[in-house]
C-alpha cells in the first residue's frame, strides 16, 4: 500500500487514467463485478463522468456504471 489517497471512481474527472484499488460492498456484488473484468489492479480510463452513469474504458471495452456503484470502486491515480 502506498500512502496516496484513494478516490471513489465517481469523483474521478473525465480523461483521467486510474487503477482500481478496491471494491467495497457485499461480496456477492463484488464477485459479479469482478467476473465482468472490473477487478483490483486493473487500469481504467474515465470516458465520461458528468451526468447519469459513468462511462469507463478497460482497453477497448466500455462500461456504464450507475452512480451508486461508482462510489464503491476506490481508485488511485497512475502516471
Amino acid at each position: 500500500m502506498n500512502n496516496e489517497i484513494l478516490v471513489p471512481l465517481g469523483f474521478v474527472s473525465e480523461g483521467k487514467k486510474v487503477r482500481i484499488v478496491s471494491i467495497i460492498g457485499g461480496s456477492r456484488i463484488r464477485n459479479r463485478i469482478i467476473e465482468m473484468g472490473l477487478r483490483e489492479g486493473i487500469d481504467i480510463t474515465i470516458i465520461k463522468n458528468s451526468f447519469g452513469p459513468v462511462i469507463i474504458a478497460i482497453g477497448q471495452t466500455r462500461f456504464a456504471l450507475g452512480r451508486g456503484i461508482s462510489f464503491k470502486i476506490l481508485t488511485e491515480s497512475v502516471n
Binding site: I33, M36, L38, R62, G68, I69
Partner: peptide
C-alpha cells in the same frame, strides 16, 4: 448496481 457493457 447498474453495470452495462456499451457495445461499439
Amino acid at each position: 448496481p447498474f453495470i452495462m457493457e456499451l457495445p461499439t
